[in-house]
Amino acid sequence: MTDPTADTPTPGPTERLTPTPSVDLGMALSQMAGLVLSRETVDTALELVTALAATATAGTLGAAVTVVDEHGKRSRAASNAATEEADALQYELDEGPCLTAWRTREVVRIDDTATDGRWPRWNEAAGRLGVRSVVSAPLLVGEESIGAMKVYCERPQNYGAQDEHVMRLLAGQAAILLANSQSLQEARRLGRQLTEALASRDAVARATGVLLAQGAASEQEAFATLAAAARQADRPVQDVARALVAEVTARNTRAAGA
């Protein structure tokens, strides 16, 4: 985790550490602690897998992994520029062997881009880049397809059933690595949400304290007061709590300065 506070609202001068909340954050934190594979580790390991794919399939010009997620389609661990270009063409034209492998969850093989009629636009463009044969295997994590891994070759008729088998095995490894990096992102998101939740909780706790000092009979009553004010102001309790604490702080500051 680089900087868990990066996306949280800037704490004001009054933000202080409060005692550890009694909720079971331990569970959430330990869930995150199990996921310490860094982005760098995953990238290095992915490059290893694509390099392995390139050597394990004879005559391969280049190999890469296509990742498809909510941020779109992109290539990772491409072994050379030509591979990256051939991939970029697929994303641009929204057609090609890897996108089909990803969508259908089946291994796709092109024996010759010059004669294959399934992806006419991509085949023609890839042919100009010198790509003649392709094997692409889907990246499957459980039921979900998260992309594809492919090898490109300059010669037609280069790949056979054996290469398809090798690619299927290696794609399995790449899928595990990618799933790991996705759970790391998930852990980061959770960490950010927790930080935000704690900041809000701090504000609510401080505002409750102020109301208790003002004579509220119990925490429950203080909370009810905050909730009622929130309803009247048509704002979340968190906003009311922050505003309350800010106002008290401002008054104290003025009183001290006067």
Binding site: A197, S200, T208, V237
Partner: peptide, 13 residues
């Protein structure tokens, strides 16, 4: 649960 914790709730999920 996360939203509830943010409002000061003390029970676990």
């Amino acid at each position: 649960w996360l939203r509830y914790v943010a409002l000061g709730g003390t029970c676990d999920a």
